[in-house]
């Protein structure tokens, strides 16, 4: 599975989000590749899902076809894990 972590600049915040997503997948025992990028670039990647802030979801909705999973607190493992579980449920 390939997952995108997206923030405005694609450098600092999405990096934090990426590390939390990786931890969540590891705890759930699922293999996943996580890549971080910025909002302008998000549409050009092939991915199974995009994790980003609630505010960016409405921007991305029109541009991408994959599932969008909003996360408010990028460093919060519990919140990210809930969304990863939702993603795994949706993919079944």
């Amino acid at each position: 599975m390939k997952v995108l972590a997206v923030c405005g600049f694609g450098v600092g915040s999405s990096m934090i989000l990426k590390m939390t997503i990786q931890k969540a997948f590891k705890e759930l025992g699922v293999e996943a590749e996580v890549v971080n990028t910025d909002i302008s670039d998000a549409g050009s990647y092939k991915a199974d899902a995009i994790f980003t802030s609630p505010d960016f979801v409405s921007d991305l909705e029109k541009r991408v076809k994959v599932g969008l999973y909003p996360v408010k607190k990028y460093s919060d493992l519990q919140e990210v894990k809930t969304q990863v579980e939702k993603l795994l449920e949706d993919k079944k």
Partner: peptide, 28 residues
């Protein structure tokens, strides 16, 4: 480089408080 720094610091420092990038506050 960051994951290495993060890994090392969480191992060595107990009760550390991470300092994160500005946009992490933007969501609020």
């Amino acid at each position: 480089i960051v994951p290495a720094f993060e890994g090392i610091s969480t191992k060595i420092i107990k009760g550390a408080q991470p300092a994160y990038d500005a946009p992490l506050f933007f969501n609020y």
